[in-house]
Design a protein around this nucleic acid. Structure first.
Length: 300
DNA sequence: CGAGTTTGACCTGCGC
DNA sequence: GCGCAGGTCAAACTCG
């Protein structure tokens, strides 16, 4: 994909054309019309993950770095204000991400969405255009590199990226409770945004999971959280008896997914999950999202 | 006193 | 090569 093409690339278009119809699902949020602009790849990720368990999940929600226009996501605020959108917990999106991260078939994960699939470029320079940064090519080197400049990466070696998953929540609180303990290790001002980006690492030893939290400059009430890597341990909250935290590595509060009143099933992750697992859909409160337990949540 | 946060310096990659 | 931006380090600091 050329730069110009990349610039105008809309993942929703691509998915709609290349993936959605093939898989027999309807995802009403995958739309490029101004009235249905969504910064959620989650149903995409979810469905894609079901069909392609070997693929990592990436989200385009990194495109907050002044690049939203490229994806026609400028109406994010309207999305959140739209009463036709449901609010659901992250479970489904979470396991969609974690499936790839924990799938033993992918010891060294690679970028999932090639241009032939969804138009996501693996090339680091193009990734940057998408709001992805080249540092994310790195895998496993938790500390990155020493301050002295030494690096575990040999010269010319291509860094590999940890599985990443980003999503947006509408919340006054930046750091959403997700059952894990995090240590903040940095904060940076974000270009073109009045809101800083905070960097967190999982406090558990030998766990390389990181997350970044920043507020959308377009919708200050929206928090963008990006998880990177996979926990190699259970949630500390497990020990405290939090069922939700046991099963869900992602925040359970106020996560927003678009829904479609005309087709609530297709837009409901949980329901879709149940359907795909031959179970009856039912309404659940966030704290009830404890069953079924996706087996890929269990640590190996 | 340990755990977590703050913050300026440093490192790296990329575009020009 | 230089400047910029993102990401990380680590000493100093805060808090319970």
């Amino acid at each position: 994909m050329s730069n110009d093409q990349n610039k105008n690339y809309n993942p929703y278009n691509s998915f709609d054309q290349n993936m959605g119809s093939q898989q027999g699902f309807e995802f009403p949020l995958i739309s490029t019309s101004d009235d249905h602009v969504h910064n959620y790849m989650n149903p995409f990720m979810y469905n894609h993950q079901l069909q392609n368990p070997n693929h990592d999940v990436l989200s385009f929600t990194n495109s907050v770095h002044g690049e939203m226009d490229q994806y026609n996501m400028t109406n994010a605020t309207n999305v959140f204000d739209d009463s036709s959108f449901d609010r659901q917990v992250i479970n489904e999106a979470g396991f969609a991400s974690t499936t790839a991260a924990e799938n033993p078939a992918t010891p060294n994960s690679t970028v999932s969405f090639s241009s032939s699939e969804a138009g996501v470029e693996e090339d680091s320079s193009k990734s940057k255009k998408l709001g992805l940064d080249p540092h994310d090519q790195e895998l496993g080197d938790v500390a990155g590199k020493s301050k002295k400049g030494s690096t575990s990466k040999k010269k010319g070696e291509k860094k590999q990226r940890e599985a990443r998953f980003a999503f947006m929540t509408k919340s006054e609180v930046d750091n959403l409770e997700d059952g894990y303990r995090w240590r903040k290790y940095g904060q940076k001002a974000v270009k073109n945004s009045p809101f800083p980006r905070s960097y967190y690492r999982c406090t558990s030893q030998k766990c390389s999971v990181k997350k970044r939290i920043e507020r959308s400059f377009e919708d200050p009430s929206t928090v963008i959280t990006t998880y990177e890597g996979q926990h190699n341990h259970h949630s500390p909250a497990t020990l405290r008896g939090s069922a939700a935290a046991m099963l869900n590595p992602f925040p359970t509060q106020d996560l927003i997914f678009p829904s479609n009143n005309n087709n609530p099933v297709s837009s409901n992750f949980y329901t879709q999950y149940l359907i795909n697992h031959g179970q009856q859909a039912q309404e659940l409160l966030p704290h009830q999202y404890s069953s079924p337990l996706p087996n890929f949540f269990s640590s190996s």
